[in-house]
């Protein structure tokens, strides 16, 4: 995770780690995934296994990566975790 992304994620990392520990997920695998964030949510995604990337194609193949965890930030600062069909496949403990 880049330092810019970590600056955004830092306030939530303890809660995310707690969720991982309580739900049989590997926190280190999770934070090795790609990270993105919106106004009041953030997500982790794993590289698409069918991608044709050789480091040069760029947007010639823009197949979105596979979301493994979506996190909604509630107004009180608590988090709502939404697993996907790829969660257990890629970030199980």
């Amino acid at each position: 995770m880049s330092s810019t992304a970590m600056a955004y994620f830092s306030p939530y990392k303890d809660l995310v780690k707690e969720y991982c520990d309580e739900n049989g997920l590997d926190y280190n695998k999770l934070i090795a995934c790609h990270f993105g964030r919106g106004k009041d949510d953030f997500y982790f995604a794993h590289s698409h296994p069918n991608g044709l990337h050789d480091g040069s194609r760029g947007l010639l193949d823009d197949t979105p990566n596979l979301g493994v965890l979506w996190v909604e930030i509630n107004k009180d600062g608590s988090l709502k975790f939404v697993e996907t069909e790829h969660t257990r496949e890629f970030i199980s403990a």
């Binding site: 790609h34 993105g36 919106g38 997500y43 995604a45 590289s47 698409h48 991608g51 990337h53 480091g55 040069s56 194609r57 760029g58 947007l59 010639l60 193949d61 823009d62 197949t63 979105p64 990566n65 596979l66 979301g67 996907t84």
Partner: peptide
Amino acid sequence: FSLVASDGDFE
């Protein structure tokens, strides 16, 4: 998940 970046986006 239409908002998820691709590997190409990172490249």
